[in-house]
Amino acid sequence: MSAYVPGPVMVAAGCGGTGRELEPFAGPDGLAGLDFVTRSLTLDPRAGGAGPRLVEVPGGLVNAVGLPNPGLEHFLATELPWLVRAGARVLVSIAGATMGEYADLARRLSRAPGVAGLEVNLGAPDEVGAGLFEVREPYHAASVIAAVRREFPSDRPVLAKLRPDVSRVVEGARSCHEAGATAVVIGNAVPAAFPDGRAGGLSGPAVGPVALRCVAEVHRALPAVPVIACGGVRDLTSARTYLAVGASAVQVGTALLHDPTTVARLRADLAAHHQEDA
């Protein structure tokens, strides 16, 4: 059995809180049936960076949140069971400092009840600064995917989340797919800086056209690889722009921070739109 490709609307990593905070705004069914990507989890707890972690800029925001998370054990004991009870399809985003950590995370998550799939964070805007495994080379990214795939059942999806860097993204998508990724997620926050020069990642409407270019090129070059688009999705128009160039699903990140009902609205709008088409 091959793994399903999530969608058409997903919650992007790090922008849905623990799920509980999103539930009041997620529509009549709450999180039930929603593809929810968790914030990236690491083996050990991480406090995250010192403030300010986010700053508003024209067209979006710059973040250096620093992957705050309670570590795998605490997540498995508290957040995961809650998400599963709420009916969410839980895709756990994982991040590691070494290849071994990625494999470890995948193995332990494969045994946790209710994990629908994994998203491997291979596109952090500043992985070295964040203390993550360096995956700038597509070869390294693919090795991580292969290591994760070995530990995670093949009937559940493993998504490779890549940086929207047009010079490398086709090669990255190809290698990750060959290494066993069910689909690729393009992209992530784009390397940028805070007003004081500190490293961060740009997200929101401003990065939409950047990710769109990458999604279009990957789909053109690799039509058989399912592509999930992520960057600046905020309404029916921005979502349909990605679907029109070949994306099979979209993720919503920054828009949820501005309006927590964005995912509920987009799900309803897309469903209505499909009905009109039919």
Binding site: G17, L22, N63, V65, L257, P260
Partner: peptide, 27 residues
């Protein structure tokens, strides 16, 4: 008043350093 981006708990952008009930430092 910690600088807040979303205000709703979604972004983890408003770190508040506290000592937990158990005496352990947390953010």
């Amino acid at each position: 008043e910690v600088s807040a981006l979303c205000g709703t708990g979604l972004c983890h952008g408003c770190p508040l350093p506290v000592v937990g009930e158990d005496g352990v430092d947390r953010v």
